[in-house]
Nucleic acid binder design. Structure first.
Length: 498
RNA sequence: GCCCCCAUCGUCUAGAGGCCCAGGACGUGGCCCUUUCAAGGCCAAGACAGGAGUUCGAAUCUCCUUGGGGGCACCA
């Protein structure tokens, strides 16, 4: 690989506020791919600086989710590393130290404004149709006023002194230069009154001390980029290279894909958004990885299906598309189907086992092994197997209604007659292989002067109680002679009682 | 409202001035195969948002318009 560069250090820095969002997973994946492509280091860092939104098990959700996707990290929680700790709540002293450093160097100041005043200010600004934002009241406090506030023990936050004139240009690796007028920039809060840092401070400090070389984050961070650039300048640190990944939009195209859009259905179907929803729906991690790399990035060469190794070989920022894209779920369904079809049937059987048992079926492993290859070309998600293959395991088996047994152009007596004869022939077969069955049944069709579908349809209904199923005789073979014949007898009873 | 980003088939995208009256994929329609449902094969419809420039030549460069998205917290 020509662009191998072991000094590359990138990070995925999620906030543990709940289950992982698929957009976050994509960000993690692109960072990981970038690191692996360059032979660099991929770091996982937990940004748990919001005490109010923190949720205990989220870290676990994140690490397990990444592992499931096949994304491993070289430094971070559970694996350690020489730039740790990798959980921000364990680094608060560091942030405080550097916030104070900025205050000492007159690059930041203590702000004693109460949340109440801020809210009122904001309301007033909006009412007067002015841009909302902090009015820098405390930036211009006299030393005496400051001392008085401190003497009173007033709670405070530390705010950064943003330059008030000029412009800040950020070079985005995907979009090129982006320039902001400094008057647009806010004196953002660096340290909250609870002593915890905000994202901006913690992020800059950590990226610096963790020697991050490239930042790849979602597009919604673009407007903080100039702010961060000024922070780096204040500290006198070199800013990592930066790239903003396009956001993923709702299927409706309205707004970014969010947890709320999980309720959005297309064709009456729920759209998964959180990683566990994809897992629960029966998507494969390999398919999801392949799918995600096709959103906002493309392999080129007119190829849509490729392995992770091929992606690593090829992945770089120059092929990242700056435009936001709608989440193409239908394509994921197709791709997942592709991966299922390419899978070793034994592996599929193994994956299908928990799907059926979770749904309450008692699974005969032998039948499952036989059923897997039959189900394989017919399902897009593992869960689809439930509908197509439930007849293999359903217990007790409910025979179909008369209407389902009697095929087009048939009536009850003729169906009864045909099925009775079919039963007798199947019972007498020397072996129960699909081909043997089929030959016998085709001969019977000939004798009775029926259409193929008239008997096959009745047999399908009798043995599966489903409208559609995998190929009839293969299915019946897997089901076994005893159970199949038993089901046909049940169907005969239904017809006799009609 | 202000700032910023973006703009190729319905959708995901290829395209870095002539290879493009725009290629691939999903989806859709048709045909073939076929015992149902799939899978598979073949075929079809389908896009450079609009307008000015620059250039011998523009999907590709510039500007404007329009449209979409993102951001404007003691959340990340």
């Amino acid at each position: 690989m020509t662009d191998r560069d072991p000094s590359v250090r990138v990070r995925f820095a999620p906030s543990p506020t709940g289950p992982m969002h698929i957009g976050g997973v994509r960000t993690a994946l692109f960072n990981w791919l970038f690191a692996r492509h360059h032979g660099g280091t991929f770091i996982l860092r937990i940004e748990d600086t919001d005490q109010k939104r923190y949720s205990e098990d989220s870290i676990h959700l994140i690490t397990e989710g990444l592992r499931w996707m096949g994304i491993d990290w070289d430094e971070g929680p559970e694996v350690g590393g020489e730039y740790g700790p990798y959980v921000q709540s364990e680094r608060v002293d560091l942030y405080r130290e550097w916030a104070d450093w900025l205050v000492d160097h007159d690059l930041a100041y203590r702000c004693y404004c109460t949340p109440g005043r801020l809210a009122a200010l904001r309301e007033q600004q909006i009412a007067e149709k002015r841009d909302p934002g902090y009015d820098r009241h405390c930036r211009y406090l006299t030393p005496e006023e400051r001392a008085a506030n401190d003497a009173e023990g007033k709670p405070y936050v530390i705010r950064f002194k943003m330059p008030t004139e000029g412009a800040t240009t950020v070079h985005d690796l995907i979009r090129g230069d982006i320039t902001f007028e400094n008057t647009q920039l806010q004196d953002l809060v660096l340290l909250k009154s609870d002593g915890f840092p905000t994202y901006h401070l913690a992020n800059v400090v950590d990226d610096h001390f963790m020697k991050i070389t490239h930042i790849m984050r979602a597009e919604e961070w673009i407007s903080s980029a100039p702010v961060h650039k000024n922070l780096y300048a204040g500290f006198g640190w070199e800013m990592p290279q930066i790239a903003h990944l396009p956001v993923i939009l709702n299927p409706s195209g309205k707004g970014k894909l969010s947890k709320r859009s999980a309720g959005f259905s297309e064709g009456g179907r729920k759209i998964p958004v959180l990683l566990y929803e994809f897992q629960d729906a029966g998507y494969l991690p390999e398919a999801l990885v392949n799918f995600l790399t096709n959103v906002g990035w493309s392999f080129g060469e007119d190829r849509e299906v490729f392995t992770v190794d091929e992606t690593i070989e090829r992945f770089d920022l120059d092929r990242v598309n700056p435009a936001a894209s709608i989440f193409p779920v239908e394509k994921l369904d197709w791709l997942n189907g592709v991966y299922i079809r390419e899978m070793d049937p034994a592996k599929l059987a193994q994956l299908l086992m928990p799907v059926f048992t979770k749904a309450g079926y008692e699974v005969n492993p032998e039948i499952l092994v036989g059923a897997a290859p039959l189900l394989q070309p017919r399902i897009k998600t593992l869960n689809d197997a439930l509908e197509m293959g439930r007849f293999f395991f359903v217990d007790p088996f409910e025979p179909p209604a008369v209407a389902d047994l009697v095929q087009k152009g048939m009536d009850t007596p003729r169906t009864l007659d045909a099925l009775e004869k079919a039963l007798a022939r199947l019972d007498a077969l020397p072996d129960f292989a699909a081909a043997t069955q089929e030959a016998a049944m085709r001969a019977l069709i000939e004798e009775l002067g029926l259409k193929v579908g008239q008997l096959f349809g009745a047999l399908r209904a009798a043995t599966t109680a489903q409208q559609s199923s995998p190929p009839l005789f293969e299915s019946v073979e897997v089901l076994g002679r005893d159970e199949s014949l038993r089901r046909i007898r049940l169907a005969l009873d239904v017809l006799r009682n009609a």
